[in-house]
Design a protein around this nucleic acid. Sequence first.
DNA 1: GCCAACGTTGGC
DNA 2: GCCAACGTTGGC
Length: 157
Amino acid sequence: MAYWLFKTEPDTFSIDDLSNRSNQTEPWDGVRNYQARNFLRDDVTEGDSVFIYHSSCKTVGIAGIATISRSGYADSTQFNPESAYFDPKSTPENPRWFCVDVTFKEKFARMLSLKQIKSMPQITTLALVKKGSRLSVMPVNENEWEILCRAARESKA
DNA sequence: GCCAACGTTGGC
DNA sequence: GCCAACGTTGGC
């Protein structure tokens, strides 16, 4: 049982989009970074919990929580020439990119903003707050998960 | 294997 | 829209 943070641009796919999906479930595809790929392929496991983080938008921060409903499998968009995520160097026999399925769990009443997260002295190891980090799939340790959940539920901003 | 050039991410 | 920081590509 592990904890993660996944980034998404809400103009493309938001936590509301996830909650509106049938079964409130969606493949988390299109990840094209090797470090993030390795987490999806090797470590993200069914039953894990995920913060859904909204980036590149008006208010950036953690919008809510999802759970992993299927662990790593080949991302089908890499084989589709019509897709923006098509990778001609990848083959079904030896897929390069992986995705997982996420299922909606909870939308916070108020977003926990990046500004708030950065102001929390207990949050030190999370990649999100590290300078220059652009990881879109990152681990969250249990202690930081608890702290962030509590802060989100108390959030008034 | 080095590294310059380029493309992308993402906060502001 | 700006731009710093990062990741990838490809010539050598």
